[in-house]
Design a protein around this nucleic acid. Structure first.
Lengths: 254, 254
DNA sequence: CCCTTTATAGTCAGAGTGACTATTAAGAAG
DNA sequence: CTTCTTAATAGTCACTCTGACTATAAAGGG
């Protein structure tokens, strides 16, 4: 709180709240959106998959806790984790969301380039990537959190430069377009996508000289790296849905 | 948390976290953005102004707590409060944000039409509207919360129908335009604003028949009420800042 | 050497927008 | 009862952006 402090407030007089972070960690693999999940080793929801997460330490902010959990779960070094995009999504406070006790959870979303399999370094013995569409019913309210996270990521691609967070340091415009197509579940016109990305100031910058990537067949593509802008002007709007597609429902954050 | 549950976890073994809500309640009065503040009656920050807020009850969600606090602070009936726009902003978790103890606070933003002076019904003896630009240094980290809330509101006006939440049930397009101009701190061209609002499906609907409002001088304006849409297609984008204006800094929410 | 594949360049019509001008309908001033 | 002022509403026009295309370039595979 902050404002009306009960006289002689004693922290232990109230039933304590536990505070945790939950992470929706995304990557794009093989043209599919994937999310990092851990298998629960104990009740409740033993054997079910869940978003990685954990308790806040006594003198730790939620952002720090999220970064720490992410490092434990992915096995990435703190340097790598410090650099990646981590965004606070929303806080979940339903009194019954955890059957054991009162837990409020601050949810974060993180975006990674395609990485080798995670090594469950911490408490979670088994952590692995799941196709986000195939992620079965998760523990707790994590299905809701995951759906909210997907909505938010999709919306943010429109008006921020976030998409480059899914790409390695150097990438082609085709790879960047793949990110948009995968997250939005639509196909985009290649020349138009290219025109928009290149005309948005600070979105991408060409890699020096004439280096190119030759993946397989086809003309080699020029390489780019992320620019210094964070916002996208003008925004890159999703094509309006023509019908009820199987993708995420339209959603604003409440 | 949710996932790695410490074996034999005892809630009381951890230093308990207090969980509160803080509310940034906005209205537009006399072409200025106003925010509802309460004066603190005790330490810390005694005599400073702060955002209204309070502790979550043991079996209450943050959204319910926000609605309850808002009803207490504004003196509005639960029916009115139940209908208004309340949006979760972000959660503040810095370990030192409250000098007394560990408090995490879930911040909400609420938008109201211009109302009579609030009656400090609850713990807060004195609650009143402040010009949002003149709101001095607030208690705790509430300056940060207020700034974040203004950023979010301004951004949401672009791509949602939120602006009608600042207006009474029936309003003129001039009043709606005033909301945009006040929140964004810019002037908009009247015919162009009108064209955009009327062409956005579901944003506003004309009030039946030929009723009109005659405020003072000038041709009476037609009345509208909020439509059923929540999203704005196409968005109503802020004009790009030409220079460093005195208004809020450009900002996305992280 | 031709075919397929992918990247890149360019074209064109329509929608949307910003900057204007014009007209209408009220109250206020004389 | 004019005339002025104010505000709402209608309409115009050039410019930009966008979606839908077509065309060309540069690689690998048969």
């Amino acid at each position: 709180m902050t404002t009306p402090v009960p006289e002689g407030y004693d922290p232990h007089a109230y039933a304590p709240f536990a505070v945790t972070v939950d992470l929706a960690v995304f990557t794009v693999r093989e043209a599919r959106l994937h999310v990092l999940l851990v298998e629960r080793g104990q009740e409740p929801f033993r054997g079910r998959w869940a978003l990685p997460g954990g308790f806040l330490l006594p003198r730790e902010s939620a952002g720090d806790a999220a970064r720490r959990e992410l490092a434990e779960e992915t096995g990435l070094g703190p340097g790598t984790v410090g650099a990646l995009h981590l965004e606070q999504l929303r806080t979940y406070t339903d009194p019954d969301r955890d059957p054991r006790m009162r837990v409020v959870s601050v949810a974060y979303a993180a975006l990674l380039p395609d990485l080798p399999e995670p090594r469950g370094g911490g408490d979670a013995a088994s952590a692995r990537w799941w196709d986000a569409d195939a992620a079965g019913p998760l523990a707790f309210d994590h299905d809701t959190i995951l759906a909210d996270a997907r909505d938010r990521i999709g919306a943010k691609l429109e008006y921020t430069c976030l998409a480059t967070a899914f790409c390695p340091a150097e990438f082609t415009l085709g790879e960047l377009q793949q990110v948009y197509e995968t997250v939005w579940g639509v196909e985009l016109d290649r020349p138009n996508f290219r025109r928009k990305v290149l005309s948005a100031p600070g979105f991408v910058q060409p890699v020096g000289g004439p280096p190119r990537r030759t993946g397989g067949r086809g003309k080699p593509a020029a390489l780019y790296r992320a620019g210094d802008a964070t916002a996208l002007h003008p925004p890159l709007l999703r094509p309006p849905r023509t019908d009820a597609s199987p993708s995420a429902t339209e959603g604003h954050d409440r």
